[in-house]
Design a protein around this nucleic acid. Sequence first.
DNA 1: CGCAAAAATAATAGCGCTACGATTTGTAAA
DNA 2: TTTACAAATCGTAGCGCTATTATTTTTGCG
Lengths: 328, 328
Amino acid sequence: MMDVAARAELSPSTVSLYFRKPDAVSPSASRSIAQAIEALSYVPNLMAGGLAAASSRAVSIIVPSVRNAFFAETVATMQAELGKERLQVMLGHTEYSEREEENLVRMALSWAPAAVVLTGLSHTNATRKLLRDSNVPVVEIWELGSEPIDMAVGFHHEQVGQAAANHLIQRGRKRLVFLGARMQEDRRAAFRAEGFLETARNAGGIVADVIQHPAPSNAAVGAMLLAETVRKFPDVDGIACSNDHIALGVIFECQRLGITIPQRLSVVGFGDLSFSAACNPALTTIRPPGDLIGTEAARLIIENTSGGSVNKQHVIDTRFTLLQRQSS
Amino acid sequence: MMDVAARAELSPSTVSLYFRKPDAVSPSASRSIAQAIEALSYVPNLMAGGLAAASSRAVSIIVPSVRNAFFAETVATMQAELGKERLQVMLGHTEYSEREEENLVRMALSWAPAAVVLTGLSHTNATRKLLRDSNVPVVEIWELGSEPIDMAVGFHHEQVGQAAANHLIQRGRKRLVFLGARMQEDRRAAFRAEGFLETARNAGGIVADVIQHPAPSNAAVGAMLLAETVRKFPDVDGIACSNDHIALGVIFECQRLGITIPQRLSVVGFGDLSFSAACNPALTTIRPPGDLIGTEAARLIIENTSGGSVNKQHVIDTRFTLLQRQSS
DNA sequence: CGCAAAAATAATAGCGCTACGATTTGTAAA
DNA sequence: TTTACAAATCGTAGCGCTATTATTTTTGCG
């Protein structure tokens, strides 16, 4: 930076200002600084900057797994939005372990990040303490319900279960089953199941159950769960799945078993994954706004970072959409 | 760190050493340092460390998009492997633009990363120059073929196309079509198509074509491409898809059109995605080792970082596997 | 027990930048 | 012109750690 300053015949302070608040330097100074940067192919050292400022242009995003299309969507969107503000995304995967999340938060805080993004509202006490003490803005995504650490962007998963149940009931279904995978680890899937059961039980004249499998969701698990369901509850006529991978497996297994959808069985998924609209039959599903969660979370972070106005204590309910297609 | 040192009644140097080379401090010193860290809930400042050492414990991974399950798998695996060594993953998405990749590399280098990971072998000249000048180890993943910047982990995509063509020919298929999406941007898909065509043309008695669509791959595009294929080439009896999303669309569209798989049409995919084994019929596909690419790339980075032995100029061919299932 | 070599610990000198207040320069009204 | 005020620029003093070299302590062996 001193070299750039020397070449531009300005002080290092002005060059620093040029990077941090471009509008605060005169157009002529800007021009000569830009030239000097170009000529020297100067790349600022963000670690020195972060050290001096006691805060870096890094945002730590911690999700269960980016293998999961939901979180991949949000992470990708956030990276694009934050990148515009020259904020770097640092990524961590908890694999659904709160203990691991705690480690990742500890590592993240070593970087004095501009913000920390966590998935869900359930964390260890140590994680909470670490974050509170650090005074870093925290955004919790993909779940609403209990009190956030400071900001939250997401929706209520119980409401998803309720919407699925209501939809099936509206379609005249009486014998409902919720199919879930890995619900011990995936709290949000469990909430969806809970909302589903509660709504069905309050409806009157409806019978509802949950069948689950401990493995991560995929179509093979969905097929197994459907097979188990028709064995246990031969009169089932409405199925909600904890996500579209399970639903896809249900569709294939029904094809193999000769169960017609939606004539004999209505199926509702969750996720609106890339294949959901193209299935045979096209899958009725509930679409969580993974991209909107990303843009809103990024917006909160950017406002908190640049604005200086501590806009904390925000909760944004992004809602979700039920997309009715052929499967119900 | 000075506080920790004071509490442990040692010098800051020893505490620093404790973090960097734990084996170099005596067991008794280790113990008292550990206690002091615990008592003060000290979190080291990695930016100060990175500044002093002129190199950070961050690894920048730049992929087209983490929405793509292939790259999500590799990124997740790398994060897990690098996390063990307390290396932080910084993530960037190019959205298949080399210009954007250049920006991301520039941003990444501001962090003096321990390594930079790029997807593929095709980059702008400026990107190459930036990386060469920075002297940061570079690992290029998911593609082999031309000369890497310094290390590469992946496989030859032409060979994937060849394997698909050979498999279909072996199954007695004569009229082949390769279905591709977004092949202008996705060089690797284009290489697979190339390998497919070349092998089919060299086989004798085989006719092969490519049909493509500019949109990103998904099942809907696959369904469209299949419909177009049977319109243009009614005698088609073997199809290879640029990935399993396309293949899934093909399966569904064939169901709708009453085309039996594999009796009338053999289908081979690419990716072995989560649904591929559970399809109806189960999808024959070529499995790229996304996780192995991740572990090998992480290994190279760790060796380069800790070992000090500049193990550059490594090329690792991870190969791929053809999984024959019911669709061929 | 004494000595050399090895192991453990400590002192020193920055790494490259930012925040802050201080200073200089520019500009419009009196 | 002068003056007052805003805009632009600058100087200073670290941020918290690491690398290197120097020093002290421990160990093994005659």
